[in-house]
Amino acid sequence: MTTSTYSLPQSERINSKKQIDRLFRGGGSKAMTASPLRMVYMTDTRQADSPSANAHQPMAQMMVSVPKRYFKRAVRRNYVKRQVREAYRLNKHILASHLAGMGDRNVSLCFIWTSDRLLPTAEVMKRMANLLTRLVEKLSATDNKNIPQ
C-alpha cells in the first residue's frame, strides 16, 4: 500500500464519481456484513497501458458512508466516519499483506454504517478486523480457483 503501514493518505480514499458508480452500479461488486458495518467491495485488474500511473496507484481504496437516515446530526455521522476510518487505518495491514502477493489487482471498498446506535471504538475495530479477514479469505479462494492446476 504505502511506505507507512499505519497511514491513510488521500490517494487511498475513493473520491472519483466514476469509481463510486462502478462500485455500486457496475455489477461486479460483492458485499458482506459484520453488523453494524456493511462492506461493499470490488476487485479490478490494473491497466497495463500506463505502468507509471499504476506505480503510484494504491492497491486498495476505501470510502465510508453513514446515512442521514440513522443519524440526523452531522456531528454523529462524522464521529462514526472517523471511527470507521481509524479502524480501517489500524487494520488495513491484514489486507495489505494479501494484496502485495497479488500484484496486478486492486480492491475498492465502501464501508456503510447500518445501525442507529453508536458503538465503542474497540467494538468497531473488532468488526473491521473481522470484515477484512473475511475479505482476504474470499480473495484467496477466488485466486486459488483462477490458478490452473
Rank of each mutant, 00 (worst) to 15 (best):
N15A: 14
G26K: 02
A96H: 09
S140N: 15
V124Y: 04
S97W: 02
I147S: 10
M42G: 02
R134K: 15
R22K: 09
Y70F: 15
A87D: 01
E86A: 08
A87P: 03
C110A: 15
R73D: 04
P148N: 12
P58W: 12
R117I: 13
N54V: 13
Q57N: 11
S11G: 06
L139F: 05
D44C: 06
A31M: 02
E12T: 08
A53D: 15
R69Y: 15
S4C: 00
V40M: 01
A74K: 00
Y79H: 08
S7M: 02
V64R: 05
W113C: 01
W113H: 08
S11F: 07
G26Q: 07
I14Y: 03
L37A: 12
R82V: 13
S65R: 08
P51Y: 10
R13M: 06
A122N: 11
S11E: 12
N54L: 13
M42S: 09
A53L: 15
A96K: 06
R13I: 02
K138D: 10
T121P: 00
D44W: 14
G101P: 01
M62D: 01
T45G: 06
H98I: 01
I20Y: 09
G28E: 07
L132Q: 04
M62S: 13
P9S: 13
A87R: 00
P67F: 03
K18F: 07
I94L: 15
R76Y: 04
A55C: 08
A122Q: 13
T45D: 14
V75C: 02
L8A: 00
A100L: 12
K72N: 15
C110Q: 10
P9G: 13
S108R: 01
E12G: 11
Q10T: 11
E86W: 04
F24L: 05
M32F: 12
A53T: 14
M102H: 12
S7W: 06
A129D: 02
H93R: 05
Q10P: 04
L132Y: 05
A122M: 05
L109E: 04
L95K: 01
F71H: 13
T3V: 05
R69Q: 15
A96E: 01
V75Q: 00
M63H: 09
A141R: 13
L23C: 05
L95Y: 03
S115M: 07
V66W: 02
T2G: 10
G26T: 01
A53F: 05
I20Q: 02
I14T: 10
L118F: 04
T3N: 11
V107N: 07
K138H: 12
S29A: 15
K72P: 10
L135G: 03
T2C: 07
G28L: 01
T142H: 04
M63S: 04
P51S: 09
D21K: 10
N54F: 02
M32I: 10
P51R: 12
A74R: 06
K68P: 08
D44L: 14
V75W: 03
